[in-house]
Design a protein around this nucleic acid. Sequence first.
DNA 1: AATGCATATCGTATATCGACGATAAACAAT
DNA 2: ATTGTTTATCGTCGATATACGATATGCATT
Lengths: 112, 112
Amino acid sequence: MVRTKAVVPKCCTTSEKLSLPDVAWAEEMAKLTWALAHPARVRIVRLLLNRTSCMCGEIVEEMPLAQSTVSQHLKILKESGLVQGEIDGPRVCYCINKQAMVKLKKLIADLE
Amino acid sequence: MVRTKAVVPKCCTTSEKLSLPDVAWAEEMAKLTWALAHPARVRIVRLLLNRTSCMCGEIVEEMPLAQSTVSQHLKILKESGLVQGEIDGPRVCYCINKQAMVKLKKLIADLE
DNA sequence: AATGCATATCGTATATCGACGATAAACAAT
DNA sequence: ATTGTTTATCGTCGATATACGATATGCATT
């Protein structure tokens, strides 16, 4: 008699060994994807990608959000490493951290 | 005299026209990246990628989380479309939605 | 020093996440 | 029908995200 526990569902045609994903890897992935996990931040990143750099004020102008809110999103993007901010006098010039973007792309592309 | 407002910071070598990113596009991107914006979900996705399919119970066994918590993460993954669940008797067989994965990869790869 | 501009931070309110245990629901096997 | 197994949902809690206006900070200019 076949125990219920041993029955393999129809959809499961293989039974490869489970490999525990590396925790640090998962955290790095989550950190980078988290940066893009809000439409406003996606739009900011897109904006920065379309330019070599962008001042905070320009970003604010393009977003239907208060200046303080945009500033917070920029802070999150900076914390993720995806975006860099360069102080230039009284304003701040933001740009994509290309290295971080490459890393994100690689992490996603290697998902298989 | 040059108004402060017109001064271009040193780091800004170009001044391309700002192009407003498509809102729907940003939301789709955010929806998919949001699914991966937590280490537990990244690990689940990784687990599913290493197999052709996986039963919920197997996932729970591999995670240091309660069954209900894993179930919630799976729900989020399903809502994002990245993961599919196929009911098979009293259990559920989860697998990656390859189409959604391709879409995510394309969205990320096209970020430039 | 004083003013003006650009950006960050603070304080606050609301909403959602993430975790858990307990319970419900669905199905298989007896 | 009853029991056992598997998964989903519910209720709750603390922590955090998100939004805003108000305020502080930093720098350039006068």
